[in-house]
Amino acid sequence: MPRLQNSGKFSKMTKILNISQLKKSYDSGSKKITVLEDITFSVEKGMTFSIVGPSGSGKTTLLGLCAGLDKPDSGTVTLCGVDLSSLNEDGRAVLRNRNVGFVFQDFQLLPTLTALENVIVPLELQGVKNANQVGMELLEKVGLANRHHHYPTQLSGGEQQRVAVARAFSNNPALLFADEPTGNLDSATGEKIIELLFQLNKDRGTTLVIVTHDMELAAKTQSILRLKSGKIVSTEAGATV
């Protein structure tokens, strides 16, 4: 399995994600709504971390900022040792491609690509030559090798999410973000997905950041950040390793 060459500093670094005094607001008509205020926390490399809070607490916004999908009004985001504000959009894209994996609530597979093609997109972006082989191995791991040629519309919700998980790990990310990964799944399927995520985290040492409103799921992670109305309410320890 090919492994991305780290710059060296990752292996020494303990904090893979550093958030400092983050603030974000949006315009809503004539009003300005503050979604996040004074958010500061960090995530250790290899740990499992969850962000919880009620609907509208700013969890998804925070996830977007952490992953470099959006820009804060103020504050800093340091991801894999790189201050995201020093990068332009293409720079952030490259950083994500090499270091970050994503699992979304509504799967976000490319509808016009097969399962295998979806899985290997991050590898192809890097120009990896044996992407197909790697992709098949990943699909094997998630139990969908025999469905590699099917399109998302031909797969059930659980199967689509498994393909998404395979894709998320295809580039051997240092950090994986999951936004409500079981939100659109039944509980049995959801549990299997979570199992998969944690297993892969254990096997590869990938840092896992999960956004969820499910406290049971959050309790499985090592650290829980509680948000309410855009502010950190508490940071608590979760499950022990």
Binding site: E89, D90, A93, N97, F102, Q108, P122, L125, Q126
Partner: peptide
């Protein structure tokens, strides 16, 4: 649009 956003999320550039 959605596919474009996904690709960018996965690391594709604007140009690509």
């Amino acid at each position: 649009l959605r596919s474009v956003a996904i690709l960018k999320c996965l690391g594709a550039s604007k140009r690509q």
